[in-house]
Amino acid sequence: MTDMRYTLLLHYPEPTDEQLSAEDRAEGQRAFSAYAEALHAAGVLIGAEVLQRSDNTTTLTAVDGTLRVQDGPFADTKEQLGGTFVIDVPDLDAAIEWGRQAPAIHWGAVEIRPGATHTVDGAWTPNQ
């Protein structure tokens, strides 16, 4: 059986610089570095992305064929998408186990979403 690709979407509150001490920021960076290293060492890490704050977001929508460009995130929530990890694991249970270990689980949510397609040598391929 072929492994499945899952994206772990990390949703959590975005504290300001004034709300987050330098020590807390450094600890979070250490935790994410250790998590990424564990994924890499296990051979399941495909890619990871830390996103800028959501107030740097531009959201596009189209209503009746008219493009709307909106500054800031589309969702008005306390938690925002802060980053992603793409992993290649045997099944959802394995993805859940890796998601359970994500540092963001302690202050937000980790959404696990299976991939629908991926590229191999530039060709789109259905995800198994």
Rank of each mutant, 00 (worst) to 15 (best):
D24N: 09
A26Q: 13
R113L: 07
A42C: 01
D88N: 12
I96V: 14
Y12F: 00
D91K: 07
V63M: 09
W107P: 00
T61M: 11
T84M: 15
T57N: 06
E37D: 14
E97N: 09
P73T: 07
I96E: 06
T125L: 10
T61G: 10
F85I: 09
Y12C: 11
A48C: 10
V63C: 04
L45M: 06
L45P: 02
H118Q: 02
E14Y: 04
L45C: 02
D76V: 10
G108D: 03
A62S: 14
V120L: 14
F32Q: 10
A102I: 00
V120K: 12
T117H: 15
L20H: 01
V50G: 12
E27F: 09
A38K: 06
I46G: 01
H106C: 01
E18D: 10
L92W: 01
G115Q: 08
A41N: 11
L60Q: 02
D55I: 06
R30S: 12
E18T: 06
V44G: 05
E97P: 00
S33Q: 15
L45R: 01
E18F: 01
T16G: 15
P103I: 05
S33M: 13
Y12D: 00
D17K: 08
G28A: 12
Q52P: 04
D91H: 11
E49N: 15
D88H: 11
V69I: 15
R113E: 02
E97T: 12
P13L: 04
F85Q: 11
A22S: 10
H106A: 15
T84Y: 14
V63A: 13
P15F: 03
A95I: 02
T119I: 06
A34R: 08
T16C: 08
G43A: 07
A109Q: 14
I96D: 00
A94L: 01
A62D: 03
D17G: 13
W124I: 10
A22N: 03
A38G: 07
R113Y: 02
D88G: 01
T84P: 07
V69Y: 01
L60N: 01
D93C: 00
K78A: 12
A123T: 13
Q70W: 11
Y35K: 10
E111T: 12
R30C: 02
V89K: 07
A102F: 00
F85D: 08
T119C: 09
Q80Y: 07
D17L: 09
A48F: 12
A22I: 01
D76T: 10
P114N: 10
A104E: 05
E14K: 05
